[in-house]
Simulated assay, not measured.
Amino acid sequence: MANHFVQDLRAIARGLSDDPAEWPYIPCPTCKRSGLTVVADSLVMEEASQSKAWHGREDWDPEFIYGAFRCVMRCYKETCDLVWVTGRTSVYQQNMRDGYQDLLHPLFFMPELPLIQSYGDCPEKIQWAIEAASPILWVDPSSAANRIRAAVEVLMDHEKIPKNDARGRVIPLHQRIEQFKRDKPEFSNVSDLLMAVKWTGNAGSHGDVIRVPDVLDVVEIIDRTIQELYDTSAVKIEQKAEEIVARKGLPASQIAQLRVPPA
């Protein structure tokens, strides 16, 4: 199943128009079911002082302009929290016909946007470890990738894969994933997926080389592993089908009445 939240976050990562009516779907972090809209007149954009000073340069170009923005977003459900957004602005020229346009780059959402829509029966500790990447996704994607790598460590803990050897030394994640593959060969495909998350997290630890789309790639990958390991919805649906066949289509309540002995 495709992670629609990741698709939405990819659209946000490409930049937002200065017209909120043109913004992509932004998922509500409270209910995770509805989209957010900008509160009327809350969008404020301000050019940076240094950017203003550059206007006097002979080589000045509109693409030198930069600044910051902020706004408030709300879900249509009144019980959901307001979401505060702030970030930077830039100017770009898509083509000669349309001229220069403002582009908004969010850096912080408070509360942060969700990464995965449903975790099924996934243990909460793993969920928390994955969502810990969301607050820093936009401002520090390398660290966000490393946090998702840390979520793989938590997953290994839950699956009872040792984190220390006989001498008490820490076992590298790479070896833990390989051990998981040996212990549970039926999930060998999951091991391969987790290894990809590990490598991206490692890259994030060695400098500012990871970008938001890279992090979203590993979010999709770890989302898939959660479905493989903890999503029991397919099994529950199959059980319901078996029960319906056993009842020959009769409602369960009617079957119960038929089994009640006469008074």
Results as ranks from 00 to 15, higher is better:
L173E: 02
A203N: 10
E78A: 11
V39A: 05
Y92Q: 10
P29Y: 04
G99W: 12
I177E: 13
S42V: 02
D217L: 13
R259V: 01
E63Q: 11
K52W: 07
D121M: 12
R259W: 10
D98E: 15
G67W: 11
G201E: 12
E78N: 11
T37A: 13
C31M: 10
E78C: 00
E78P: 00
A48I: 06
R10S: 01
M96L: 14
P162F: 04
M1R: 08
D41I: 06
G207H: 09
C71T: 01
V154C: 00
D208K: 10
R33K: 14
S42E: 13
Y25L: 08
V39N: 05
P262T: 13
G35A: 11
D59K: 02
D98A: 10
F69T: 00
G168R: 09
H174S: 12
T200L: 07
D165A: 05
T30S: 15
K32R: 12
T89N: 03
R224C: 08
T200Q: 10
H105Q: 13
A263Q: 14
S90V: 01
E228W: 14
V260C: 05
A246D: 14
A246W: 08
K184H: 06
K160T: 06
I177V: 05
T79E: 15
R97M: 12
K163Q: 13
P123C: 03
D231T: 06
I226K: 03
T30G: 07
K163T: 01
K236W: 12
A256S: 11
Y230F: 14
L258R: 14
Q239H: 09
I177D: 08
D81S: 12
Y66D: 12
A40R: 13
R88G: 03
D121W: 12
L229N: 09
E46T: 12
D165S: 02
G67V: 04
D183R: 12
P29A: 07
V139Y: 07
S34F: 11
T200I: 08
E238P: 04
D140L: 07
E178A: 13
E243I: 03
F108N: 04
I148G: 00
A11V: 00
N3I: 02
K32I: 05
L43K: 08
I116Q: 01
F187S: 04
L258D: 11
R211P: 02
P106C: 06
L137M: 03
Q227H: 11
Y76S: 08
Q101F: 06
H4Q: 14
S51M: 09
V38F: 08
A166W: 11
V218R: 01
T37M: 13
Y92I: 04
R33C: 06
Q7T: 11
R169D: 15
K125C: 06
R70Q: 15
I136R: 01
R211F: 07
A48E: 14
V215M: 09
C75L: 05
V245A: 13
I116F: 09
D41G: 01
E228S: 08
V245M: 13
Q257L: 13
K184Y: 05
V83A: 00
E58C: 03
I255Y: 10
A129V: 03
A145Y: 04
S142M: 07
I12F: 07
W23T: 00
